[in-house]
Amino acid sequence: MDKLDQSQSQRDEFYVNLGLAVRTLREDLPLLFTRDLNYDIYRDDITFLDPLNTFSGIQNYKLIFWALRFHGKILFKEISLEVFRIWQPSENVILIRWNLRGVPRVPWEAKGQFQGTSRYKLDRNGKIYEHKVDNLAFNFPQQLKSAASVLDLVAACPASPNPTFLWGPVDTYPSSWIAFYRAVRETLDREGYLLSQDGLATCS
């Protein structure tokens, strides 16, 4: 195979994998809290970033989504993610705008909506090597405020039947949302131990 044919073959592989990535993300994200992702579209050295956190490696990436599913089921009566839009600002980038809705298990009316953007970068073979979450905001009627971290989103939700939209230490506002934040954060902090347990990455 000459260089021209090899280059064309690589381009063909890129577009096949790009199409698979877009299709997989479109199917996976709305079911994020009910089943595991298809990790075939990601590289083993994938990096996850938000404004405050960085995690590298496919096992850490799997752990993030396992923790979200596990604690989401325990702490919320309803929790779901809706994909608003998928587009490509450039050939090797996939952008997804999403909205997260949740109803925590508390004895009063409490709902929250979080919006954000996931930016996926693809290598020359069309495999995702970086997932960055940004443009985070939580949204209540006539309220729209920014959040610093994807895990900090839950700290912004109503903590009582008479919510106040205050920023401060997580300990100040006990609620199911804060418990969710803490549980996910602690799970990720214990990754060295948890990743050694059989079956964790595929738990659903």
Rank of each mutant, 00 (worst) to 15 (best):
residue 4 L to R: 11
residue 7 S to V: 12
residue 8 Q to L: 15
residue 12 D to Q: 10
residue 14 F to E: 02
residue 17 N to G: 04
residue 18 L to Y: 08
residue 29 L to R: 09
residue 31 L to H: 15
residue 34 T to S: 13
residue 38 N to Y: 00
residue 41 I to Q: 01
residue 41 I to E: 00
residue 42 Y to I: 00
residue 43 R to V: 01
residue 49 L to I: 08
residue 49 L to T: 10
residue 49 L to R: 14
residue 53 N to S: 11
residue 54 T to S: 14
residue 54 T to A: 13
residue 57 G to V: 00
residue 57 G to T: 00
residue 58 I to G: 03
residue 58 I to D: 02
residue 63 L to M: 07
residue 64 I to R: 04
residue 68 L to H: 10
residue 69 R to D: 00
residue 69 R to Y: 01
residue 70 F to R: 15
residue 71 H to P: 07
residue 74 I to P: 05
residue 75 L to T: 04
residue 81 L to C: 14
residue 82 E to Y: 12
residue 82 E to Q: 14
residue 83 V to A: 03
residue 86 I to F: 04
residue 87 W to S: 07
residue 88 Q to V: 03
residue 88 Q to N: 13
residue 89 P to R: 04
residue 91 E to T: 09
residue 96 I to M: 13
residue 99 N to A: 12
residue 100 L to P: 04
residue 103 V to K: 07
residue 104 P to S: 01
residue 104 P to G: 02
residue 109 E to N: 12
residue 109 E to R: 10
residue 110 A to G: 06
residue 112 G to R: 08
residue 112 G to N: 11
residue 113 Q to V: 12
residue 113 Q to K: 12
residue 114 F to K: 05
residue 116 G to S: 05
residue 118 S to M: 11
residue 118 S to W: 08
residue 127 K to A: 06
residue 130 E to P: 04
residue 131 H to N: 10
residue 131 H to L: 06
residue 134 D to S: 14
residue 140 F to L: 11
residue 140 F to D: 07
residue 140 F to P: 06
residue 142 Q to V: 08
residue 142 Q to E: 15
residue 143 Q to P: 01
residue 145 K to S: 09
residue 147 A to H: 01
residue 151 L to G: 02
residue 152 D to Y: 07
residue 153 L to C: 08
residue 154 V to C: 10
residue 154 V to W: 12
residue 155 A to I: 10
residue 155 A to E: 13
residue 156 A to Y: 15
residue 158 P to D: 07
residue 159 A to W: 08
residue 160 S to R: 07
residue 162 N to D: 14
residue 166 L to M: 12
residue 167 W to F: 14
residue 169 P to Y: 09
residue 170 V to R: 10
residue 172 T to E: 12
residue 172 T to Q: 13
residue 174 P to W: 00
residue 174 P to M: 02
residue 176 S to Q: 15
residue 176 S to T: 06
residue 178 I to K: 10
residue 179 A to V: 00
residue 182 R to E: 11
residue 185 R to Q: 09
residue 185 R to G: 03
residue 188 L to P: 04
residue 192 G to H: 14
residue 192 G to N: 15
residue 194 L to A: 04
residue 197 Q to E: 11
residue 199 G to L: 05
residue 200 L to M: 14
residue 204 S to K: 11
